[in-house]
Write a protein that binds this DNA or RNA. Structure first.
Length: 105
DNA sequence: GGTTTGACCCTAA
DNA sequence: ATTAGGGCCAAAC
């Protein structure tokens, strides 16, 4: 299993209505400092993927998708559909990690 | 192979 | 609190 496959398999486990951070996923794959690389994996997903990429945000709870074919509004829409409140604060969208962070056992 | 590129994160100021 | 800078790692060139 290569790095990408590991990242994707973790992402697939994030439950509906919760979010995970890039760094959190990196840590679960035993390379705690590879947060950026996690972002690369998600970036390379096809538009039709079933992976819940929208449940992954950065360590500050901010939606960090930018300059892609996918607008960040799409991510916001998907999160809200799952009951996650997203707040617009000076040009960026934020979710409350205290409320929504996935805490796997 | 070396070099560059990010949907990142931490620390210091 | 907010910002700037540097380090990180895997993929893509």
């Amino acid at each position: 299993m290569n790095f990408q496959e590991k990242v994707i398999s973790i992402a697939n486990k994030i439950p509906r209505g919760r979010v995970a951070t890039y760094g959190q996923i990196a840590a679960m794959v035993y390379t705690p400092r590879a947060a950026r690389a996690v972002g690369l994996v998600l970036r390379n997903l096809s538009a039709s993927t079933k992976v819940p990429w929208h449940r992954v945000i950065n360590a500050h709870g901010m939606i960090s998708i930018e300059n892609l074919n996918i607008p960040k509004q799409e991510q916001v829409r998907r999160l809200q559909k799952e009951g996650i409140e997203v707040e617009l604060k000076n040009g960026n969208y934020w979710a409350d990690l205290k409320k929504y962070l996935w805490r796997p056992k």
